[in-house]
Design a protein around this nucleic acid. Structure first.
Lengths: 146, 146
DNA sequence: CTGGTTGCTTGACGATCTCAAGCATCAACA
DNA sequence: TGTTGATGCTTGAGATCGTCAAGCAACCAG
């Protein structure tokens, strides 16, 4: 065998590291959102709005109750970051759309995640590709409910 | 050159993937905690208690206000998962300690994170080592405040 | 058109979070 | 010693987040 794969980290260690980085990124996101007067949940919802999304769809994406979404959208709408539009094919449905200001705001929040950006700068392109490949393999287990 | 490094993923894509996995792991954690009657925040606090930790230290670890910790510890203490002990060297300080039941509960929560565990099983030991190494390089950028 | 389902909102209630204020204790220093 | 300032924790007010139960409107299958 070749030179020393030093100590294979235990699953628990890897677990903990992933959790720590996830938390740190979330804090970074929350802090950037706060600078724009948004809570992290509001920013997270705004981040889903690449196009029109019905309230129900947002509840599914955010893994929460639909009634919760009502309140969050209410507050975003009051700030003019989001709009409710009737769905042409189903009058029960309300589609949520980000306004121009909404898009611009979430764009800035993403850009201002300094800690996250500088962390990724520690890797070169080949390493990022490797990392992406490995993380991508974790996806099915994590996102697919058993 | 050799076979096709396919498409180097953009930083944004990597960003999004890390965020998605972090969220999925958090949901997994929250679901496991809920099965034991704990909110995710309560479980997260409990997870910090390998030894006695003063209230102030918990506030720092959880990145929140000290008054917030008071409430969370109140509820955990009411369930007997946690205890407040006076600090022998500073009478202002209260150290929080997990009870036996508290330790056992958080142990089970970790063990029941099925999605997370099965996701990690998708990698063999060498891959986990590589992944750990790469993630570890992200640490300084993310955890160190600029 | 009737009955069951689905999408959204409302209201009640608990948990989380921050801020301001307050009390007890500590640490430093005249 | 005693006074001053900082620190640790709690309390109370107020906003947000989150769930559940109930209600209304609209869809859909028969």
């Amino acid at each position: 065998m070749t030179g020393t794969t030093p100590q294979p980290p235990s699953k628990a260690q890897l677990l903990e590291l992933v959790a720590a980085l996830g938390t740190a990124q979330w804090q970074d996101f929350a802090a950037a959102a706060a600078r724009h007067g948004l809570t992290s949940v509001q920013a997270k919802l705004l981040a889903q709005l690449k196009g029109p999304v019905p309230m129900r769809g947002l509840a599914t994406l955010l893994v929460c109750d639909a009634s919760n979404v009502t309140g969050i959208v209410d507050r975003l709408e009051a700030r003019g970051l989001v709009r409710r539009e009737p769905d042409p094919s189903d009058r029960r449905v309300k589609n949520v759309v980000a306004t121009d200001e909404g898009h611009e705001t979430i764009r800035r929040v993403r850009a201002e995640m300094q800690a996250t950006h500088s962390a990724l700068d520690a890797l070169d392109e080949a390493e990022r590709t490797t990392l992406y490949g490995l993380l991508d393999r974790l996806r099915p287990g994590l996102e697919h409910r058993v």
